[in-house]
Design a binder for these strands. Structure first.
Lengths: 227, 227
DNA sequence: AAAAATCTGTTGCATATACAACATTTTGAT
DNA sequence: ATCAAAATGTTGTATATGCAACAGATTTTT
């Protein structure tokens, strides 16, 4: 199994197996709703999601949960990339649907390779893209959480979701219950604000299908330069 | 000027000038309190802070401000790394103190170099480290903002600050006013919670000097592997 | 098909928070 | 040294939010 746009992009299939060995890489399938890993328990592996859907969830000592990340194919996770030294909360990576994950060793990746393997460079290049993408995702998450009120968080989240789906109408990737955990607010308070948004004719929401009636964010220009 | 642990680490000084040209790289000094850039206006440059201190600030349409990032030498910034498509808010990068910034072109960095310059690989390696570090910082920021109450945000922030300074006592990197913008809460409400934390003997705070009386987070083990 | 579990939607209530306004202290500029 | 600006610290009040508890709808499991 080989994801053409992923970490092994631009690497000839014949080198694939060698690299799998060199970078302690392996692939693993997971059924739905399985604990893939618990932070604190594993070393410097990073995982790249090839198929499926994954959530990184923090469970507080008092039972409250926060959805730290919601990941899809092409996204990556790993303790090394999000070392949050916190002894009182438990951070778990959980499969929402059946998943296929590719692992590589972060230390192997980041170290200067004394053998200067010709493929190392391509791999690092790809990793750079994936990690940049992660930074962008985290930045968007930050944008949502930095909103002061629940209403603003909802508008910000819906606006981003609408932008990403290229449409005014889109499906929520999770239940309203889970959305509250994602926005870090109380569910009932969130339901109240959703009702107000409906009353104000800013959104329409039936089940997980949301339509926004405000302008969604416009993408900034993508400029191209050459090296 | 040349930062040994930065983006040009492990690159011979003699190649330095060539690379500066190849990657459209240049360095620039800024005085304190200057707008370094406004997101939306520039292309795919990323900046690496060599000296000084920088804040990334979002100004809402209603005048409210949020400190999105607080950056120090070795940290990086750039629109490409945090494209938040948002038309109603202004995002500015501002120097807190006199700064020296190194710029390189992100597209140059991320593209596969047809010439396969021997130094490109080393540069990408270094960029990978810097961007990973940024992901970690964003993750920590997320940890703070995902706390539900102002009290929890304060404790989480102080705990992280204490951890990073390897001490129970540390100096805040900015004023209490700015801290409120960083935690995304109202200043007066924050002051009230700080007073409560003092009353509960959990912290002591005189000016910008904070001492925490609860256990700060313990670092997770750093394991080493070889490639 | 029945039962269990989860999700949705709502409400009352106590509390936390935002907002506004103010006095005082500290910092920075001239 | 003087003045202006910013930061600190406080309080009252209206509102938003968290919390608990509940009923009905929907989904999943058995």
């Amino acid at each position: 199994m080989y994801l053409s746009t992923g970490i092994f992009q631009d690497i000839a299939e014949e080198n694939f197996q060698k690299m799998m060995t060199c970078f302690h890489s392996r692939q693993k399938h997971y059924p739905a709703n399985e604990i893939i890993t618990t932070y604190g328990s594993q070393g410097s592996r990073i995982g790249i999601i090839l198929e499926g859907e994954i959530m990184v969830i923090r469970t507080h000592y008092d039972g409250r949960q926060t959805i730290l990340e919601h990941l899809e194919p092409g996204d990556i996770f790993g303790e090394t990339l999000s070392v949050i030294p916190n002894s009182i909360s438990l951070i778990q990576v959980i499969s929402v649907r059946p998943c296929l994950v590719q692992y590589i060793d972060y230390q192997c990746l980041i170290r200067r390779c004394s053998k200067a393997c010709p493929w190392h460079s391509a791999l690092v290049n790809n990793a750079l893209r994936l990690i940049s993408q992660k930074a962008v995702h985290l930045g968007e998450r930050l944008e949502v959480l930095s909103q002061r009120t629940t209403r603003e968080k909802l508008i910000c989240y819906f606006s981003l979701a609408s932008f990403h789906s290229h449409s005014d109408t889109f499906l929520l990737p999770f239940s309203l219950s889970t959305l509250a955990d994602y926005l870090c607010v109380d569910r009932s308070a969130m339901m109240r604000e959703i009702r107000k948004l409906k009353d104000d004719h800013l959104i329409s929401i039936v089940r997980r299908q949301v339509t926004v009636f405000f302008d969604r964010s416009t993408p900034s220009d993508v400029r191209e330069t050459h090296c």
